[in-house]
Design a protein around this nucleic acid. Structure first.
Length: 311
DNA sequence: AGGATAGCCTGCGGGC
DNA sequence: TGCCCGCAGGCTATCC
């Protein structure tokens, strides 16, 4: 398989690392200025949900940053008066503090904040940039409104999902378990990388019908999802090409990927050859030996090109 | 209900 | 050297 190392792909661990670096860097600060450079990258709604023209007040101008929260792959900066800006990084989004000090931080900047820090009164720039523009900003009069509307469509956060919640999310589903994990309504935060990694860790074939997993398998999968995400956060996330947290630090978890991006290579557990296929329109890698073939949902797309599955 | 497909978008690398 | 094209993917919309 070709080595491509594409994209930023912020999933839950990368977004959590951004959240933590923002929390450390700007929480407690006062937003002196806020500007939107591309109006189609931001949607603002009032308390009734009516769409408004985004003003700098919607982007927290004049507010004190009280916290930065995360649900799944989405972030929110919340001011002490309740105003909130939801940030979705999509594929290539970044939130950077002091971007001038960081390489490749120019261009595609869609919003910019000037923040005065509480301790020393230092003034920092915070930018949201997103070359591919799959991400965006959404502003709310208060954080509860964000939770009740936009975030209510998301399932439980994957980092802390319980066995019961995952059981409920998967029961009755006839789609492949990997497709269910990618569905943010089932659980929020898992994308293509960590879906493959968690399924490998749980020893489950990604094509297994979601609703056919038994209790022990769902328990294993729950544990695998939580552990995989936790370890990835501890490694600072996965940097495939240029993911960085808000301070510019890359992650290291890509070095620990067992399956993602490794089709045709040796399984780290059994030494057999990892296979690649397309499932739910996503490239998928798994070990045919370690990930049992019980209750397989036969995908119409078998292993893809020969070069992808073997050497 | 879920699959398939297209669309949004840019950067990169392979191939010619 | 340089151009074209395929591909990467989070999410939505639409049709089947």
């Amino acid at each position: 398989m070709r080595e491509r190392n594409n994209g930023l792909m912020p999933e839950l661990p990368e977004v959590e690392c951004v959240r933590r670096s923002l929390e450390k860097g700007i929480v407690g600060g006062r937003v002196l200025q806020a500007e939107l450079l591309r109006c189609d990258m931001c949607e603002s709604v009032d308390a009734r949900g009516c769409v408004l023209d985004t003003k700098s007040e919607h982007l927290l101008r004049g507010g004190d940053l009280e916290r930065v929260v995360r649900h799944g792959k989405q972030l929110a900066m919340v001011a002490s008066d309740g105003r909130a800006v939801c940030i979705h990084l999509g594929m290539t989004g970044q939130v950077l503090v002091n971007p001038a000090a960081q390489p490749r931080s120019e261009g595609h900047v869609h919003a910019r904040w000037t923040v005065r820090l509480p301790k020393d009164g230092r003034i920092v720039q915070v930018v949201f940039r997103d070359p591919r523009r799959f991400g965006g900003l959404w502003t709310f009069e208060n954080y509860e409104h964000l939770r009740r509307t936009r975030w209510s469509a998301l399932g439980p956060d994957a980092l802390t999902i319980s066995v019961d919640a995952l059981t409920q999310g998967l029961s009755g589903r006839v789609c492949a378990v990997k497709a269910a994990l990618l569905d943010q309504r089932t659980l929020a935060g898992v994308g293509n990388i960590y879906a493959d990694e968690a399924l490998f860790r749980a020893g489950l074939d990604p094509r297994t019908r979601a609703g056919k997993l038994d209790d022990a398998q769902v328990r294993r999968l729950t544990q695998a999802i939580r552990e995989t995400l936790k370890q990835a956060i501890e490694s600072g996330g996965s940097t495939l090409r240029d993911y960085r947290d808000a301070t510019g630090s890359p992650g290291a978890y890509q070095e620990r990927h067992a399956v993602y991006g490794r089709a045709g290579k040796a399984c780290t557990r059994c030494g057999g050859t990892l296979l690649g296929l397309i499932l739910a329109q996503r490239s998928t890698v798994y070990c045919p030996t370690c990930q049992s073939k019980d209750a397989v949902h036969r995908a119409k797309n078998g292993p893809r090109a020969a070069g992808l599955s073997t050497f």
